[in-house]
Amino acid sequence: MRVVVAGATGVVGRQAVPLLAAAGHEVVALSRRPGPQRAAGVRTVTVDALDREALAAAVREAAPDAVVHLLTAIPATVDPRKVARDFALTNRLRTEAARTLAEAAKDAGGARFLAQGLAYAYDPAPGAADEDAPFWRRPPKPWAASLEALETLERITAQADGLVLRFGHLYGPGTAFGRDGSGIGQIRARRMPVVGDGSGAFSFTHTRDAATAVVAALAHPEVTGALNIVDDEPALLRDWLPGVAALLGAPAPRKVPTVMARLAAGAWGVAYMTRLRAADNSRAKRALDWAPRHPSWREGFAAELGGRPA
């Protein structure tokens, strides 16, 4: 199968491209800047994803059997008080670029269309959300534009009879929660606190597990809609944050009242720490015959950072 991967040099793309090539696919790797994709069976094409004509031409020239949208432009460090600014470019990639890629896939004879979504946009409620749960009905205002972009991405993908892979909080090489990432740096320096009762529920996804889900999704063209690609063990902030700090040999995180946190991190920062809902991966396991190599954040972070699981 010839597969176009848009966002081939991103944190998931860097993992997915060699896995796709190893699985026997011919990969056309699209990126804004030339990347180190020199594996057998991989051809790199440099293109601006927001240049509609150039992007469509790159896909058309590739004549793919599948198009994989992994484009994001999230800064290495996100300011929770300016999340609308920090996600503005990613929002365009989730809407404008997604539309171009989906149309190009259709023009290529109905190529399979896969897109990277989020598994932590669900409306706050008890328990882990399955894919039928609604997205956040009344999101914090700073995150409203990002949520709207995600909903647009899902509509575009549905219209293309494609599949959205809803990834959880990514960790692994190149991410904020990678060995040298900004989030890990904040934990080491005790600058990431437990806010309020630390009740935000997180579902994590290692970047390699995200990549193996991409490969699995191409092997199951009958699967459409959306699937949660997350690990097996949702974790409350008050549990995983001290656990990761212990792995690092860092001091235990501070505890900060919600009122104080709102002054420092704004409405979205507080909601992120206290109101997120975890996701359930049962449907993805059944539909794709997929399972995470790291079923728990505990052993996954231990493998990534060194140390013993919390």
Rank of each mutant, 00 (worst) to 15 (best):
I184T: 10
R277V: 04
G172L: 08
G181A: 08
W136D: 07
P34Y: 00
G13F: 12
V5H: 04
E26I: 00
P34N: 00
E233K: 15
Y272M: 13
G168N: 05
T46L: 02
Q116C: 15
A278I: 02
G127Y: 11
A264E: 09
R191E: 14
A57D: 15
R254F: 10
A267K: 12
A160C: 07
V28W: 08
R308F: 01
P126M: 06
A115I: 04
H294Y: 13
R277N: 01
D65P: 03
H69V: 08
I184L: 11
F167K: 04
P234Q: 07
P309W: 04
D48H: 06
L305Y: 01
R43N: 01
A176F: 05
S31M: 03
I229G: 03
A291T: 13
Q159R: 14
A49R: 03
A284C: 08
P221E: 09
A246Q: 13
P139S: 04
D197C: 00
V28M: 09
G306N: 06
G35W: 03
A97T: 10
N228K: 06
G183W: 03
F167D: 08
E61D: 15
L163C: 06
R32I: 02
L30P: 12
A160N: 08
A57R: 15
G307K: 03
K141G: 00
R283S: 10
P173K: 11
T44G: 14
H220Q: 13
D130Y: 11
G110D: 10
A210I: 10
Q15R: 15
H294R: 09
P36S: 15
A6G: 14
A246P: 01
G174E: 08
R43S: 14
A73H: 14
A125R: 12
A261W: 06
G162S: 07
E154S: 02
R308L: 13
A16V: 11
G168C: 07
P139K: 08
P36N: 11
T44F: 03
A40T: 14
I229Q: 06
P221Y: 13
L101A: 05
P126T: 05
P75H: 04
T44P: 13
L153S: 04
S282C: 00
A189G: 08
